[in-house]
Design a protein around this nucleic acid. Sequence first.
DNA 1: ATAGGAATTGAAAACGGTTGCAAGGGAATG
DNA 2: CATTCCCTTGCAACCGTTTTCAATTCCTAT
Lengths: 340, 340
Amino acid sequence: MVRLKEIAEHVGVSITTVSRVIKNDPSRNVNPDTKKKIWKAVKELGYIPNEYARQLVLSSAQEKKHTKRIAWLASSRLAETNPYFSKIYSGINETLNDAGYTLLLISNEDLEDDVLFHQIIREKEVDGVLLIDEVDDEKLTEIKDLIPVVGVDFNYSDHAISTVDYDREEAAYQAVEHLITRGHEKIGFIGGGIGIEMTKEKRFKGFKKAMNDFELAIEKHWIINSNWCMEQSYLAAKKILSETKNNRPTAIFCAGDLLAIAAMRAAHELGLNIPSDIAFIGIDNNEMAQYIVPALTTISVPQYEMGVIAAKTLMSQIEDNPNMALKTLLPFELLVRQST
Amino acid sequence: MVRLKEIAEHVGVSITTVSRVIKNDPSRNVNPDTKKKIWKAVKELGYIPNEYARQLVLSSAQEKKHTKRIAWLASSRLAETNPYFSKIYSGINETLNDAGYTLLLISNEDLEDDVLFHQIIREKEVDGVLLIDEVDDEKLTEIKDLIPVVGVDFNYSDHAISTVDYDREEAAYQAVEHLITRGHEKIGFIGGGIGIEMTKEKRFKGFKKAMNDFELAIEKHWIINSNWCMEQSYLAAKKILSETKNNRPTAIFCAGDLLAIAAMRAAHELGLNIPSDIAFIGIDNNEMAQYIVPALTTISVPQYEMGVIAAKTLMSQIEDNPNMALKTLLPFELLVRQST
DNA sequence: ATAGGAATTGAAAACGGTTGCAAGGGAATG
DNA sequence: CATTCCCTTGCAACCGTTTTCAATTCCTAT
């Protein structure tokens, strides 16, 4: 390992001078010739500053340097399954990268490990944390006092942290309203809801509110929790739609496009026509939604923008440190296609 | 900041002893009572070891400590668009996490930035690099001498680095062969190929080989480069399939399921029946493939396993350091469904 | 009792930088 | 020619750990 010392000897100056040149310290002036010679030696010898030694000195003076790293905290299951998140990720990553940050991926489950938690959060291996999934309350309470935190794609947390989301209750309301204006009265709901009580699920709330506002009855066994799993959505839909015409819904609101696609398959296999026998509406505007047959009516959510804004919010919290808990809501849009 | 010194003073022992207790050094024995007292003080004062000071000492003795971080190097465009990669990612992430590693996401484009490159690769902010996309040759040559590298989901690189992939030429061959055994003779090809000359694309090679082996003619304007973009695949398919019956293919081999789905939409809009008028086969076995109507015949690729093995390969290169360039190929499987 | 060994502890020297302070040298000024 | 000042440079202390080595105490076996 090349050290300052070797450069100093090679050039014939003191370590101090070399250090000053390399740090490009503007408050100290070094003879241009010396400077040139030192840089030459640095290149030749392939010197790389020892970050540890540097920080050691600084650690007492100023507070610990920013690492320019940010943790993306999500349950691994989630990131893996849903293309929905890759768009959010895209927005986050591009924004962060432009600002010189890099993303560290940590799955929620791993954070249970105390060692990791200690190392990453307490020792500030990262400057901030982006929450995609809900973390359990206890952990969140612990984290949010130690390090800036911004949540994306959810907002039902009671904690005082910044979140970026769309108004999912209103989105669901409009989706159901759309079905109702199309004349539907018997409407089912296929939700995701991993470990979240349905009651907390805003999309379900929106569904209920719309049904109530239009004085329509909610049929309990048309309410499905799919665990965000296409297979489950498919099976559930198959079950519901196998009933006789009077006992099955005429429309189903799915909390995700993928769930809708799976459910539509079930309808197709049962020989039902979409949308005349059974209509479907999703949420997400997955790229696929427009290509499947029939194209899926859905609510387009600004995933990319959510990522961008979440990243910006977090960076401003890190850099300017205003500990305000901002709740940002982004606009969405109903896209009517062939499935309704 | 709480330092060893303060603990030492608080307990009334030397810094040395405190250090030994905290490191839990088994080769040195410390009086159990002292140990207990020290731990108590550590907890009370909230001591957190200064990683910089620690590493500074170690940096000369052994080589620089492993950071337990690994960089995932991919073009941002790629990760964003294709659910295909999230499965690979899943395999990688889970395997790494189990071994105590975390993933750092770096987009290919950002690495062009010399500062980032220097910091991440040269200063060993990570222990190793996973390549998903091809990096440009120059960069790769530079990286692979500095740090362990493993490539996933490609193997046409001439460089001596380890790769994990499936035999994509053979997979393509079997896909086309399947179409041919179904009686098709006029077969089109929709490929991805971002910035890669088609000739380098193994899937295209497999396609050509099969066509040649069965003595079928390749129609040039049935060969499309979609840039992995569903929209382009859709448009291209629409153009080809608008021709009169004699001038259009009876089957199309798509280098990805998503491309196939988009192309099928085009066929549908033109009123063509799948598979009797036009058959489709994809590659990937995207989760969606089985749910669309008609379900897509495709080649299932062990994405998750590829991720797992790539991660393991990289870890063994980091830890055991055998600089061998292993080329691992995983098995795939033809899944015949309704689109052929 | 006493030598020898094991258990326990501490002093001090690194590790590779940064930085306050002071000194040397030359040019400018009186 | 003496004085002052600025430019340039180096000395040395320090950052918070780890670790070598030696010192001290306490047993145990003779």
